[in-house]
Nucleic acid binder design. Structure first.
Lengths: 186, 186
DNA sequence: GGGCAATCTTGCCACTGACAAGTTTCACGA
DNA sequence: TCGTGAAACTTGTCAGTGGCAAGATTGCCC
């Protein structure tokens, strides 16, 4: 978290992560090239390896950042499950590069300590939003409800990103998500 | 649908698609190598190009096959939306290679005629299942309901495949899906 | 039986990720 | 102040990949 330009070529680690976000938005996470990132940052092709080990290492760092951001996003809307769901979809669409790396275990190291911690924070934010839901007297099955809420938000976001949804859904993800998610929130 | 070994090396096109399914199960669609498929089929590295043009061409054919299979699967359970949802999740888990290619537009050519047709059939099967749902007197918003049903099933399937679900969900996807999907089917 | 088109092979090029070994730059203590 | 060791980065190399071009083989059809 140092913000000073240091060492030979500046804050390379940070520069590479930023370049990775850009590149992923352009070509997707699978087509990401470490050598391209090095070129964007103005360093040699082997420089990234020094900071991240390999490609999976870089994407693991990115995924951890992403879960951290998502956790913060969800916490802000925590008292309103519908809005939390909308925020989830909005996160997926506006921070697409993060989202795609986060949910592709073959791209990163899922057992990385920092990643696990960040993912845990995001999961906790999600579950606390569901637990705060009024149950209307009926006994709540928080596990099941959380899973259902997560599934519908995640599914809508994924389908949106995949371009799989029909045109009639429109081009405003927040609005479309709110309509669909409200079907669950009774 | 010819089943006879024909031509120089047999039914290469079919053999390559089968090899691709295997390989994707093993290493994922992104790490798929055409040269590896050629090796598995016992042909030279350039043989696949003749049948599919390039990698995207092969995956497009695979995606079309997948949508066709999915359409048939959904049609079989068409009178029961919950069972159709369970079948959707089951398809994703048991025919994972198809599913992953189908919903990754960067891997295939989304405007391929055969793909578009097959995807249309799957979409129609989904919507007809929702339209057949009893509305309980209230005016149905089929579009929204179909989207919600699709989203929750797709989201659960995607999270399952990503290994993102907590352990307590268990290891039986059909059972777990039924519990979660029933939350929507009121 | 002869031509022809579909099928497949060989050879090549640019690109990639990973590794090894060398070089530059900085930090820190004697 | 200096020099020594570590961190940061470079250069060079290798095997593997996708895609293209050009050639060889095979089966089909008139």
């Amino acid at each position: 978290m140092t913000d000073s330009r240091a060492y030979h070529h500046g804050d390379l680690r940070r520069a590479l992560l930023a370049a990775a976000l850009e590149a992923i938005e352009e070509v997707g996470p699978a087509a990401l090239s470490l050598r391209d990132l090095a070129r964007r940052a103005g360093v040699s092709h082997a420089a990234p390896a020094h900071h991240f080990g390999d490609k999976a290492g870089l994407l693991t760092a990115l995924a951890a950042q992403g879960f951290d951001l998502l956790a913060r996003t969800l916490t802000e809307a925590d008292d309103d499950l519908l809005e939390a769901g909308v925020a989830y979809v909005d996160f997926a669409v506006t921070r697409r590069a993060y989202f795609e790396v986060m949910f592709r275990p073959e791209l990163h190291r899922a057992d990385d300590a920092e990643l696990v911690a960040a993912r845990g924070r995001a999961g906790a934010a999600l579950r606390s939003g569901v637990a705060a839901l009024p149950t209307g007297g009926a006994p709540a099955d928080t596990d099941r409800d959380a899973l259902a809420a997560w599934s519908i938000a995640h599914g809508f976001a994924t389908l949106w990103l995949a371009g799989a949804l029909p045109d009639r859904v429109g081009d405003n993800p927040r609005e479309a998500a709110r309509a669909v998610l409200s079907r669950l929130a009774t």
